[in-house]
Amino acid sequence: MNYLESSYYFDFENDLVQEIISDYKDDAISNKEKTIGTYTKVRDYWKYDPYSISLSKETYKASSIAKKPTGNCVEKSILLIACLRALKIPARLHLGKVKNHVAVERLMEKFGSNELTPHGMVNVYLDNKWLKMSPAFNKSLCVKLKVEPLEFDGENNSFLQQYNNEGSLFMEYTEDYGHFEDVPLEFMTRNIKEHYPHIFDTNEKITEFKL
């Protein structure tokens, strides 16, 4: 599989994506430094919003995500992957299911569950090994939730904030759906409808929902 290619979703030739990585196009900067810098930018410049759900292809294009001020975990992961591939750093989407244990009242109200699925993160290939990282929670949100923001050091996995600063369980992975070369929209659509049947009509006329 080629984890460097552009696609409909990872459209990194787009000017908006190129602008995000403009500070990291210098060959003198190592791939590790490029990855850390781009990860931090995507993590913090786009605020995390889990309450916008879509089944539309256009929603999951990196260039479309770049236009917005917010994104959910899958959208922010797609944007980061496009940026990394544009920098010739292999990257792929990894999906799973997570359970939140902090600030769950609105999740329960909107989703009928404190489980979020599919939850997106990024696999990046650095120094001959795949590493996991999650750009979902922006730093300002972490401060609000009293949890340490996930920092990525380019050498270790950084995808799970298991506890908050008070030692309470924050989140946990309950299922691992594996990694994907491109965005698996059909799988994601089935997954969303299976777990949240009350959100979308069965006739599939509704493709976007703001909770």
Score class of each variant (00 low, 15 high):
F180I: 05
G112A: 07
K210D: 05
A91E: 08
M121F: 13
H179F: 13
T40K: 15
M188I: 15
L116T: 10
I192G: 02
D23C: 10
D182L: 04
Q18F: 09
A28W: 13
I20F: 05
Y51L: 07
N72F: 10
F137N: 12
F200Y: 12
Y173S: 02
N157L: 02
H179E: 08
F200W: 06
Y3N: 13
E115P: 00
C142D: 05
P50K: 05
I36G: 08
Y39L: 01
V42W: 01
K47V: 12
E109T: 15
N138E: 07
S52Y: 15
L116F: 14
K110V: 09
G112Q: 07
K99E: 15
S22D: 08
I29F: 06
M188F: 01
N114W: 06
E175G: 07
I81N: 03
K41D: 06
D26P: 08
N164K: 14
K88V: 06
E175M: 12
S113Y: 08
N72Y: 13
T35M: 10
L80H: 08
M171D: 00
D11R: 00
E33D: 15
R190L: 14
S30F: 11
Q18L: 14
E13V: 04
L160F: 06
I21L: 10
I29W: 04
K146A: 12
Y48I: 02
N138D: 15
K61W: 08
N72V: 03
E5C: 09
L150A: 05
L107N: 12
F159D: 11
N156I: 01
E5P: 01
L141E: 09
L145G: 07
F209N: 02
N114G: 06
D27M: 11
D153L: 09
Y196H: 01
I192E: 02
K68M: 14
G120A: 06
F152I: 05
D153I: 09
V17C: 11
Y9T: 01
I20Y: 03
R92G: 03
T202N: 14
V147M: 10
Y51I: 01
S30M: 11
G37Q: 05
L93M: 11
D11I: 00
L169R: 14
S52F: 15
F111W: 11
L95D: 02
Y60Q: 03
Q162M: 09
C83D: 06
L211R: 00
E175Q: 15
W46M: 04
W46Y: 15
R85G: 02
F137M: 14
P90W: 07
I21D: 05
K205C: 00
F200C: 06
G178E: 04
N138M: 01
A136M: 13
Y8F: 15
P149A: 10
Y48P: 01
N203V: 05
Q161A: 11
M121S: 07
I29N: 05
S22W: 02
Y196E: 00
D153R: 09
N156K: 09
D176Y: 09
H195G: 04
N203P: 00
L4K: 12
V104D: 03
F12M: 01
R106S: 08
K210W: 04
N157M: 03
Y177Q: 02
S54R: 01
N165A: 09
V102R: 14
V143P: 00
K61D: 06
K132C: 07
K139A: 12
L185E: 00
M1R: 11
A82L: 09
